[in-house]
Design a protein around this nucleic acid. Sequence first.
DNA 1: ATGGCTATGTGAAATAATTCACAAACAATG
DNA 2: CATTGTTTGTGAATTATTTCACATAGCCAT
Lengths: 205, 205
Amino acid sequence: MKKKIPEKTIQRLLLYYRYLYFLLQQGTKNISSKSLADLLEIRGSQVRKDLSYFGRLGTRGAGYDVMALRDTIAEILKIDKEKKVCVVGMGNLGAALVAYKGFEALGFKVAAVFDISPQKINHKIRGHTCHDIKNLSKIINEHSIEVAILTVPAEAAQETALRLEKAGIKAILNFTPVKLSLSKKVKINNIDLAMELKTLSFFIR
Amino acid sequence: MKKKIPEKTIQRLLLYYRYLYFLLQQGTKNISSKSLADLLEIRGSQVRKDLSYFGRLGTRGAGYDVMALRDTIAEILKIDKEKKVCVVGMGNLGAALVAYKGFEALGFKVAAVFDISPQKINHKIRGHTCHDIKNLSKIINEHSIEVAILTVPAEAAQETALRLEKAGIKAILNFTPVKLSLSKKVKINNIDLAMELKTLSFFIR
DNA sequence: ATGGCTATGTGAAATAATTCACAAACAATG
DNA sequence: CATTGTTTGTGAATTATTTCACATAGCCAT
Ligand SMILES: NC(=O)c1ccc[n+]([C@@H]2O[C@H](COP(=O)([O-])OP(=O)(O)OC[C@H]3O[C@@H](n4cnc5c(N)ncnc54)[C@H](O)[C@@H]3O)[C@@H](O)[C@H]2O)c1
Ligand SMILES: NC(=O)c1ccc[n+]([C@@H]2O[C@H](COP(=O)([O-])OP(=O)(O)OC[C@H]3O[C@@H](n4cnc5c(N)ncnc54)[C@H](O)[C@@H]3O)[C@@H](O)[C@H]2O)c1
């Protein structure tokens, strides 16, 4: 053990969690790596290898206890511990994202939303009062927000990212098609939707 | 040559394209694999290997001609050829996506949008008249739409995906947190935003 | 031209991720 | 409690991707 855990493994862990959650609702008590793998169209050995990073979670001959495994994964991923996020840029995409219930289900809480436009500041958007970006640092510190979702226009992305870093944000989910340059300390995940669409369409016909 | 091209290579090609586009606007005529790689924080050898799948695109000693390379990549990815897409489910996320200009820049045209709710059908949303999902097949065929963006509620996802397959859709960009089961012929890309956020936050601290 | 430099293109090596395959653990059954 | 059958956990093998390293093409100055 003591190996570095691949990011892919973490992603699959989340998928396992979703299925286990569903299986439990259905009353399923036990599942084998093979059955779980079949649901996801992967190999049983992949499931077992992923889980083996975190100890011996199954029982030979019997498979995995659905509830126990779900809870263990929740603990590994800290789904049980609420984490606060903010959304910066309350335009089309930002507004859609704060309305999304799927974040809550994984332990996220939108604790603040920001914009620069006087049309939005101090107005309620999907139940969240929009703050002035000027107050970014203050509010992030007050609420101990660690993660930011960045949905400002591309032109403002780098500048805003720097403000987020200065405010002490640890991770950014970046929806802008801009490569952000920050210190290595800030973890960045880029969601490039146009790219996903293009990649997809490249592989047809 | 004649090797299978990795999906990762296609993704990077798109990033190269964006930078080349930008560099050309700045008046840069030539660039080395090293300089381009530095912008993306990858290795020069990665750039060269990626490009080598498509022939000899550079000049030894001099690097790559920015305009020529940009155009070659546009051709490889068929950015020059318009591809029609539809958006199914015009809720929060669907409405945000049809407003996005970034798709057009890569050669996509939103040719139709669909919903099931009488509140939306026949109403204009961001400039697109929303069609009844009942007419999916007809409209997809009329416009020769090949790609669908799926943004219906999770409960309706599998059923809607089957309708899309039957209507002749070749590829689906799936925003629902549901594993779609379709025949192998339909290419599916899943965008799981809650998962991206969770993966991101797992790796901090 | 010739020679010196620079940067490509590409096999080979290194690294990473997935899959195989099987011994060992445990369940179930009689 | 022994025997049979099932399924885990994990090294080893395989496959995929990235990086190295260098021969060689082509630019440029003289
Ligand atoms: N709309 C989409 O579907 C979509 C898809 C993929 C990517 N994106 C990207 O997401 C980003 C937002 O897209 P959108 O369509 O929501 O744009 P939008 O114009 O609707 O929203 C941007 C919001 O950011 C605010 N803003 C501008 N500068 C700011 C600043 N410095 N600080 C704080 N707020 C600021 C604006 O007032 C506006 O409300 C863009 O970078 C876009 O490329 C959007
Ligand atoms: N909102 C987000 O930011 C976000 C983020 C990630 C994923 N998602 C996923 O995207 C999907 C849509 O999210 P949303 O927030 O836009 O939801 P929403 O409820 O705002 O929109 C869903 C839309 O789909 C329509 N619809 C319902 N059944 C349909 C059917 N059978 N055919 C056609 N249209 C139908 C509804 O009328 C509604 O307009 C969900 O699956 C959600 O999990 C949303």
